[in-house]
Design a protein around this nucleic acid. Structure first.
Length: 575
RNA sequence: GCAUCCGUAGCUCAAUUGGAUAGAGCAUCUGACUACGGAUCAGAAGGUUCCAGGUUCAACUCCUGGCGGAUGCGCCA
């Protein structure tokens, strides 16, 4: 049945509706494999295919495409049955998989900034998508709560902390303290002070050895940061199943290094412990090799520093092992920026050698950076990184101005509520719309525009479905049973066909980790809905049509709402 | 220097991973409707997909070589 098992037939929606509704092009690559004439093969298959029950037409075209045109009756029937699912037009995955998603990962004692927004929003969207598709999703926030920065923070806490400032703006004060101490520990900076650096190292060692005072301060810094994280995640509507920070893995790090060394995967080098190439991969694909001066040179992955300390790679290996033992996932997804590609290639390769039997799929879902309107990395006018809390404030404020301009008659409380949904939604939508791998330009004007592929446009389309339904109820018109869907006008048919593809788009988002597919789908859906309303009067029409059209409008509203929810956007019934 | 990613309409971005005549929005120009919620809809114009080769039925997509940009390359995460 179209819309349900089309992927089994290797067909997909036609790129251009004038060719048909669905097309099969898989036969052409099959023909190439078998060195056959593609058009002949397609003709043979077509001759044996009987799809007359669903299709008014199935024809051979071009170099070997088979195009299918659905019967309108079959379309209505397919849509009706798909709409009866627990989540309309969503088919749950046949074998549900266990998928761990690692995203957001803010640092303790530092304000969350724009650098965290893409990971947070993208990771949350993938979690929502895969859950809706029926998978068992486990979200884990790998918080940066351990490492060298705590040596410096402890020095600052003990020497220059302003208690009053800590009480009013904890993160601001911690940031100030860190900025005061950090340059003094950096040999390359003019502020460098070897006594401060040595003190920082000492405080870090004491912390790592379990010194009671330092542990107490460390815990307080975590608690203060957690308040900030909770506030931001609540505003964004993001939830985690676990938040196992780096410190959680600290007790395991030594054993990881010992095991890798004992197994010959890692060895000592210049006082550090490193993983080198084992020659099992072609040099071009080997993350432990680098092309230098015309030859392949070692590009090792450090898992223990020469001072005995552990680093990012060590923690990530321990984390991977823990996740595998604890949750037995089929897949682990890491959502980080593109600069960490080499790190993850080395991490995954090291892990494969460590656990060659593991079947888990490891995916590094990376994204580009956010640029300001000048094309440079996104900063405040003063050149500072933009804090996430400030960004969300501004989004809500700008949306409030917009709502106030358009709907001055609404109460302030109502306008504030709409502005919250629209403002936060606009930030999220602007982040999910571009292909994640490209850098994108941050623009308030574009993300809050009323026309075009924006959150306000989609949210507005949804509110129209709700107000139409409200008006229908008030005038006593029934929405009609699903079984009464009658598709006549071209606009109705086009809308119905697009609705039917919702599940396929969700699957593509989950497979390719690309929410922009869903953004574009919803934008097209909203456009088709507007055209449908333009061409097909609903409440003004007579009854067999009226209830069917009302039903089609409501179904579109339900899909819009579900789609926006998967993207992490709230909806509102009034705008 | 080497590696990864990117280069598409004036601007911002798509293109279901090798499929049919490369699509949207903004900006520009034109049109519809005293509106079942106009924050609407329809139309026009805009392209040598950075350049040069190659692979095949088919290339924005893959390969080779350039040009331009971002990022990363041994003790940060």
């Amino acid at each position: 049945m179209p819309g349900t098992d089309v992927s089994a037939l290797l067909v997909r929606p036609c790129p251009d509706p004038k060719f048909g509704d669905y097309q099969c092009n898989a036969l052409m690559s099959l023909a190439k494999e078998r060195r056959m004439n593609p058009r002949q093969l397609a003709a043979d298959v077509l001759a044996r295919l009987d799809v007359s029950e669903w299709c008014e037409k199935a024809e051979l075209a071009g170099a070997g495409f088979i195009n299918f045109r659905l019967r309108t009756s079959a379309l209505a029937q397919a849509l009706q049955s798909a709409a009866r699912a627990a989540h309309p037009i969503v088919q749950t995955a046949k074998p549900p998989r266990t998928i761990v998603i690692d995203f957001s990962s803010p640092n303790v004692a530092k304000p969350m900034h724009v650098g965290h927004i893409r990971s947070t929003i993208l990771g949350d969207c993938l979690a929502r998508t895969l859950r809706l598709l029926g998978h068992r999703v486990i979200t884990d926030n790998h918080i940066g709560d351990w490492g060298t920065q705590f040596g410096m923070l402890l020095v600052g806490w003990k020497t220059v902390l302003d208690r009053a400032a800590l009480a009013t703006d904890a993160l601001g004060e911690l940031e100030r303290v860190y900025r005061l101490v950090s340059p003094q520990c950096d040999e390359e900076r003019p502020e460098f002070n070897p006594r401060v650096r040595d003190r920082a190292r000492l405080e870090l060692v004491k912390l790592q050895q379990g010194d009671a005072e330092n542990l107490g301060i460390w815990r307080e810094m975590i608690a203060l940061s957690q308040v900030q994280f909770d506030t931001i995640y609540a505003r964004l509507g993001v939830q985690f199943d676990h938040a196992l920070g780096e410190s959680f893995y600290n007790p395991r790090l030594k054993a990881v290094v010992e095991e890798l060394r004992a197994r010959g995967i890692a060895r000592d080098s210049e006082g550090a412990v490193c993983v080198f190439s084992d020659g099992s991969l072609p040099p071009k694909d080997d993350p432990f090799l680098i092309h230098k001066d015309g030859a392949w040179a070692p590009n090792p992955c450090l898992i223990q520093k020469s001072d005995g300390g552990f680093n990012y790679a060590t923690t990530d290996l321990a984390t991977l092992a823990h996740r595998l033992e604890t949750w037995r996932p089929d897949e682990i997804i890491y959502v980080t920026d593109g600069r960490q590609q080499l790190h993850f290639r080395q991490l995954f390769a090291t892990f494969r050698r460590w656990h060659p039997e593991a079947k888990v799929k490891l995916a590094h879902v990376w994204f580009g950076s956010i640029l300001g309107e000048d094309g440079r990395p996104f900063k405040t006018r003063a050149g500072e990184t933009v804090k996430l809390a400030d960004l969300l404030d501004e989004a809500e404020e700008r949306a409030f101005q917009l709502v106030t301009r358009l709907r001055p008659e609404l109460s302030e409380a109502k306008r504030r509520e709409i502005a919250r949904v629209v403002g936060i939604g606009a930030v999220k939508y602007a982040d999910l719309l571009p292909n994640r791998q490209s850098d994108y330009l941050f623009s308030w004007d574009r993300m809050l525009a009323l026309e075009g592929n924006t959150a306000p446009y989609l949210l507005y389309a949804y509110t129209r479905t709700q107000s139409l339904a409200r008006k229908a109820r008030e005038s006593g018109v029934s929405a009609g049973d699903v079984s009464e869907l009658k598709l006549g006008a071209l606009e109705e048919i086009a809308l119905a066909k697009h609705l039917l593809n919702f599940g396929l788009v969700l699957e593509a988002v989950g497979e390719e980790y690309r929410p922009n597919f869903l953004c574009n789908y919803l934008y097209e859906l909203a456009g088709l809905l507007s055209r449908f309303w333009e061409g097909c009067p609903v409440l003004k029409s007579a009854d067999p049509e009226r209830s069917s059209r009302l039903r089609l409008s409501e179904l579109t509203g339900a899909v819009l709402k579900q789609g926006l929810e998967v993207l992490g956007l709230e909806t509102t019934d009034q705008m």
